[in-house]
């Protein structure tokens, strides 16, 4: 018996995750050395790190909550700085300052150059977006088309944020947000 039908692959071959791709910029260029180390988790998901110590990268993908219109993230950025600015009242000449790493520095003036000082900064990032339901495939099921509305953050080390591409493309790591340090 010959039958009229088309064979179907029943397994899901497509990505269902909707990630916002963030690139960090320092001095207006993307440098992998802009961030020495990076940690991130969704607020409320402290036990499930998205990034757990990533060295020398400046591009990150954060998963958006597809069943909400807002996602909140806690970011920990460890940067390398070569300059520490101290207030005038601090530290008489020849004072010794202990740094996070076992380096000691001799102060000569209020602003001084150091080597390999690691600065740990915590930032909160909030992303809001609109969603429209769509079929990914009958094998994979449904997801949402996500368009970013706005992104804002605390400003401990982040200087400004720019929405370069508001459309989230599933499975593609194309930049959506520029964060300038």
């Amino acid at each position: 018996m010959i039958f009229a039908f088309s064979c179907r692959n029943e397994s899901c071959m497509e990505s269902l995750t909707n990630n916002v791709t963030i690139n960090f910029y320092k001095d207006n260029t993307t440098k992998d050395s802009a961030i020495y180390n990076f940690y991130a988790y969704g607020i409320g998901k402290n036990d499930n790190l998205i990034y757990d110590s990533v060295l020398m990268k400046s591009s990150f993908n954060l998963p958006l909550n597809i069943n909400s219109d807002t996602s909140r993230f806690e970011l920990t950025l460890i940067t390398i700085t070569d300059t520490i600015h101290l207030p005038d009242s601090c530290c008489p000449r020849d004072s010794i300052i202990k740094t996070p790493l076992p380096d000691t520095i001799k102060i000569y003036k209020p602003t001084f150059k150091v080597k390999n000082i690691y600065d740990t900064i915590h930032e909160t990032l909030i992303v809001s977006y609109s969603r429209e339901i769509e079929l990914v495939s009958h094998e994979c099921g449904f997801s949402y088309i996500i368009k970013l509305d706005s992104v804002w953050s605390t400003k401990n080390i982040i200087d400004s944020i720019y929405l370069s591409n508001p459309t989230i493309e599933r499975g593609i790591d194309a930049e959506n947000v520029k964060i300038f340090l």
Binding site: T17, G42, K45, N48, I50, P63, N65, I66, N67, S68, S71, I133, L135, G141, F142, S143, Y144
Partner: peptide
């Protein structure tokens, strides 16, 4: 399409 379930594995949310 009926009784559509959408599950987010990271945020553990469902709609």
């Amino acid at each position: 399409g009926n009784t559509i379930i959408i599950y987010d594995p990271y945020w553990v949310s469902e709609s």
